[in-house]
Amino acid sequence: MKEANRDTTHFGYKTVATQEKASMVADVFHSVAAKYDVMNDLMSFGIHRLWKRQTIACSGVRQGHKVLDLAGGTGDLTAKFSELVGESGQVILGDINDSMLRVGRDKLRDLGRVGNIEYVQMNAEALPFPDNSLDVITIAFGLRNVTDKDKALRSMYRVLKPGGRLLVLEFSKTDNEALSKLYDFYSFNILPTMGKLVANDSESYRYLAESIRMHPDQETLKSMMEEAGFEQASYQNLTGGIVALHRGFKF
């Protein structure tokens, strides 16, 4: 699902100048950061916690690992990874949006997660790490907001160690027609209303719904990971394909 014209890209259903997308996405997440966790629970009926638990279970993270929770936002994955890597390991909570990063940092400090967590504002397309330096990278519900997904996947591949793995947890496509119709109604009618009532922002949540529809489907994303260099790329559909967990390795 590559862009036909590199000078333009999608922002939801809109076509915008490529150089403008990052700031437009930033505005969305500046707006929703304070209510992000509350809205996640409401939007997914709490199921996002099960999706993230499965991501952790498939990560292979263990003591001493260096892990990047990319687009990690409010730090749900970082909190668990911090336990798993222990004092000898390190977890980097990375996000392009400083508002989300601040919310994540404050939440993790309130939970007592200190010592092995670093907070870094970064762009997924140009990760600020040496080649072959990370054991695991996760990106949960963030890849669809990246302007150049192919470039970001290559950047992730570059910084992973040989033997390292990438996990991409993201909204995807369901083949169930009844579920698809119900999901569309929910996304474009209920979700913006919920955003208005809870976060006083319906437009940001309308964008989030549109961005999900514009994201590559399961097979396309698998192919994109393979083109970036990842081997044994695979995916697992969750909740009927509404969400998919992709996994790839660097050998």
Results as ranks from 00 to 15, higher is better:
Ile139Lys: 13
Leu169Ser: 01
Leu169Met: 07
Lys196Gln: 10
Asp135Pro: 07
Asp150His: 14
Gln63Ser: 15
Lys173Ala: 05
Val146Gly: 11
Val114Arg: 06
Leu101Gln: 11
Leu197Glu: 15
Arg113Gln: 10
Val61Pro: 04
Glu177Ile: 01
Asp110Thr: 01
Asp150Pro: 12
Arg144Val: 14
Lys196Met: 08
Ile137Ser: 09
Thr138Ala: 09
Phe141Lys: 12
Ser202His: 13
Asp184Tyr: 13
Leu68Gly: 05
Asn145Thr: 14
Thr138Phe: 08
Val198Glu: 11
Ile56Val: 15
Arg165Trp: 00
Leu153Ala: 13
Gln90Pro: 01
Lys196Gly: 08
Asn97Glu: 14
Lys196Asp: 10
Thr193Ala: 12
Leu169Gly: 03
Ser180Leu: 15
Lys107Leu: 00
Gly115Glu: 00
Asp135Val: 10
Gly142Leu: 15
Asp98Thr: 08
Arg102Val: 01
Asp69Cys: 02
Gly104Thr: 04
Thr74Lys: 05
Thr138Asn: 08
Gly104Trp: 08
Arg158Ala: 13
Phe188Arg: 11
Arg113Thr: 05
Arg113Asp: 03
Leu93Phe: 11
Ser155Arg: 02
Asp110Ile: 00
Val146Glu: 12
Asp131Phe: 11
Gly75Trp: 06
Arg109Gln: 07
Ile139Met: 15
Leu179Lys: 07
Gly115Val: 00
Gly64Arg: 09
Gly164Phe: 10
Tyr186Asn: 07
Glu203Arg: 06
Pro162His: 00
Arg165Asn: 01
His65Lys: 04
Ala152Ile: 15
Ile190Leu: 15
Val67Ile: 14
